[in-house]
Design a protein around this nucleic acid. Structure first.
Lengths: 237, 237
DNA sequence: CGAAACCTTGACAATGTTCAATCACTGTGG
DNA sequence: CCACAGTGATTGAACATTGTCAAGGTTTCG
């Protein structure tokens, strides 16, 4: 792989020339079709995975065999970083593509070595980790404060390019409603009903995966009531 | 302040001698009585706060004035790190002591400078951030999977020194039930009822803030059913 | 076409919240 | 020392929200 390619990825853009060189030798770029198992549980603690494009579902199984969705990765997200300093096999998960995807994988021990040698790179990772932390805090807040309809509305709002526009906006849900539901911490049935309620409350027009929002302010008013952030919050998904 | 003191704190233990020297000159160690406002909203983005001992509540206000508990810090936790690389005043909060506390404060810009110069220190922070991330992931999972009673039980379980002991264990709740309730994402009334239900289910004896667990396995069986982790999971609070 | 996956709907149960009332405990001032 | 206020905690009843189970519709794709 080419060093220039890594240079263009924000997470690696500050890495030293030596790191980039080493990365380009040891990283692998792979493509998968939709619904492929990319990492099985036993592999997940040994690999750092960077998602170039597409969507990936990370999930585990509970003691009783139920599927627990840990996270949905989108473009430019990554996973596996929690194994940088821990050997624990506690947090293992399965990674499955939910669209066609392009990814990069790096053996975790190799990445750790880079991290120990390259100060700039570790600062980039620190920065990214702190951002992710904020996002997780937001999700926690939403889960305990917002209703199902508000969480869906919040997701839609944060998908708008320009949330303060007065114009009507049309957008597509990025993936299955089933997956979006579990991502927002609710059952598919609840999602379906809540989306219905939301569209009544806020005058949305919904046709399958397409959503038309005639007036964004209707939505933000309904959604952002109880939240600690100030609209437009610009938090990533 | 003395450099040895910082050396004894895990988060700073790997810092270079120069960093320790600089830290000991610019950090402040302060004590507060219970219920003091330690950081008001407008200060929180300028200060890194390390908690030596006691408990601190971090909270914000929603658009409507309701209090939103962001986090409860316990011994050896810290806050303010999210402002290392972001100037945003988005995530500001108020920090209030909920017991007598001893803390250390470091101006955030000063800490940032250290981080840019001291590779080892930034690795320690990266490691800590990744651990915190795992903790947040666990909280998210619990909030959407566990019932109120299970969350309380999980908290109690993880407060036990030796969760695989066969002996009976007695412990104290670390702070108000009101605060614990909001930390676990439920109303005080729900907490009260759920604790009652839990003590029936798992044969606990509860007297105010003291909880006696005759048989821990009763508790773990009831609590850990749906969780993706394996008992005893040893996750921090 | 037919199977499988995705999505929706209805009836009902479980869970948690809200509001109001009450009680226990603590510390304060007369 | 006692009355009293204030905080923390509990309880009941009504209500809101979400989950569960079962059935049926829709879309997609081989």
């Amino acid at each position: 792989m080419q060093t220039d390619f890594f240079k263009s990825i924000e997470l690696f853009s500050q890495a030293s020339p030596e790191s980039l060189e080493l990365l380009s030798n040891s990283a692998e770029r792979v493509s998968y079709k939709k619904s492929s198992i990319i990492l099985a549980q036993h592999q997940s603690s040994a690999v750092f995975l960077y998602l170039i494009n597409g969507w990936i579902k990370l999930y585990k199984e509970s003691a009783e065999g139920a599927e627990i969705v840990v996270d949905i990765l989108s473009q430019e997200n990554y996973c596996g970083e929690s194994f940088l300093f821990e050997e624990k096999t506690e947090e293992v998960y399965t990674a499955q593509s939910i669209s066609d995807v392009d990814i990069i994988t790096v053996p975790i021990q190799f990445l750790k070595q880079l991290m120990l040698e390259d100060h700039s790179l570790s600062l980039s990772f620190l920065q990214a980790a702190l951002q992710k932390q904020q996002q997780l805090n937001m999700q926690l807040e939403h889960l305990s404060i917002q209703t199902a309809a508000q969480r869906i509305g919040c997701f839609i709002l944060r998908s708008c390019d320009n949330p303060i526009s007065e114009e009507s906006v049309t957008l597509q849900l990025p993936y299955d409603k089933l997956i979006l539901a579990s991502r927002l911490g609710m059952r598919p049935e609840t999602f379906s009903r809540a989306l219905g309620a939301l569209s009544e409350q806020c005058d949305l027009r919904i046709d399958g995966e397409n959503i038309c929002i005639p007036k964004i302010s209707n939505l933000s008013q309904y959604v952002c009531q109880h939240c600690s952030k100030i609209f437009p919050c610009n938090m990533p998904q």
